[in-house]
Amino acid sequence: MRIPCPYCGERDAHEFATLGDATLTRPDPAAADADAQFHDYVYLRDNPAGAHEEWWYHANGCRQWLRVARDTRTHAISGAVAARATEQASGEPA
C-alpha cells in the first residue's frame, strides 16, 4: 500500500503510523455529558466497508499528519492532504 504524501510524494505505508478515523470530532471535555461522549468517541467506532477518511502520520518522512482517503475493502487510496490544511479549513484541532 502506498500513500501519496503531499510533501514527500508516493511512499510505502511502512513509513507511516495510522491513527484511524478522521471523521470524528473530539468531544468537549467541559460538557455535562462528557463521560458518555468520550466513551462513544473512544470505544464505539464504526467499521465502514468502503470509502473512509483516516489520519496517518508520516513518521519516517516529513513528520506531518495526513488525512488519507482509503477504501477499506480494496485499500485503494484516492488522495491525501496535510492535516494542517484541513485543520485550518475546519478550525478543529486534529
Partner: peptide, 10 residues
C-alpha cells in the same frame, strides 16, 4: 532530496 528509511534506518 528525500527523508525516508534505508535498511530500516531513518
Amino acid at each position: 532530496a528525500a527523508t525516508t528509511v534505508i535498511a530500516h534506518i531513518g
